[in-house]
Design a protein around this nucleic acid. Structure first.
Length: 256
DNA sequence: ATGGCAAGTGATACTTGA
């Protein structure tokens, strides 16, 4: 089973890229973020025609998440039931017995902003809910895939000194991510040897991609039973090279 | 040091992203 996550930065703009990518990468499950579409505008027909069922939870202009699957999807839940949130950032579903959570973690804007406070509260509540979900799904496993908006370590940042303790790299955010991992999750990317300077997002400005000025902020975290099944994880930089790309690249993991 | 770029909204300059 191949599973993947991709922040598409507007599904309206990126639908052709999504379909093209799935054509050459027919993963079984794909979690997407930042669809930026109300549910009535979701391109259901096009995605169905590509061979995927899909659950989605969107809103106008901002946020929005979806889970695409070649296999039947059941038990869809929108949002963290413990966290009252007008923003559509979480979608959970069961596929082949595995619990999948698609997450678009708040950006946080800057460490002195209200959005940063919201981000930390959001993550703390996610941890509480995940602890419960992990117990419920201990046997067949749980995978939480998405845009975490957190670079876990300095090696996940192109210029750690320059970024310092700015948002996406701050100690409190990293501690919040560590607290998720300590529930019994594994960053699938770091289970394997990887190229140095591996990133999943590059700034549109200043030739960020061409200069590989990026961050690794998109992650696939696996519960214990799924980590045992995981035989590969990689970032696919290809679609970041296409014309009018998303600023994020997909991350793919293989479960045996 | 600052702003650079992209997308959405709505028709203009703005907000947000990371």
């Amino acid at each position: 089973m191949k599973i993947a996550t991709w922040n598409v930065n507007s599904l309206k703009v990126r639908l052709p890229h999504l379909l093209q990518w799935l054509d050459t990468n027919p993963v079984d499950v794909l979690c997407i973020q930042e669809t930026k579409l109300e549910d009535e505008k979701f391109p259901l027909m096009e995605i169905n025609a590509a061979g995927y069922q899909v659950a989605f939870s969107g809103q106008k202009t901002y946020n929005g998440v979806a889970i695409l699957s070649r296999l039947p999807i059941t038990d869809v839940v929108r949002n963290n039931p413990r966290f009252e949130d007008a923003q559509q950032r979480i979608l959970a579903a069961t596929i082949e017995g595995v619990r999948f959570i698609c997450a678009y973690v708040p950006n946080g804007q800057s460490v002195d902003s209200d959005k940063y406070v919201y981000k930390l509260a959001w993550l703390a509540s996610l941890r509480e809910w995940l602890a419960e979900e992990l117990r419920t799904h201990a046997d067949q496993g749980l995978a939480i895939l998405g845009d975490y908006n957190i670079a876990p370590e300095d090696r996940d940042v192109y210029d750690p000194a320059g970024w310092g303790e700015e948002v996406l790299c701050s100690p409190k955010e990293r501690a919040a991510l560590t607290a998720l991992v300590e529930l019994g999750l594994t960053d699938s990317f770091r289970m394997f040897e990887q190229p140095e300077k591996s990133y999943s997002w590059w700034d549109y400005r200043q030739l960020g991609y061409q200069k590989n000025k990026g961050l690794r902020i998109d992650h696939i975290l696996l519960s214990e039973s799924l980590a045992k099944r995981c035989s590969a994880c990689a970032i696919d930089r290809m679609p970041r090279k296409w014309t009018q790309p998303s600023d994020h690249a997909p991350v793919i993991a293989t479960l045996d």
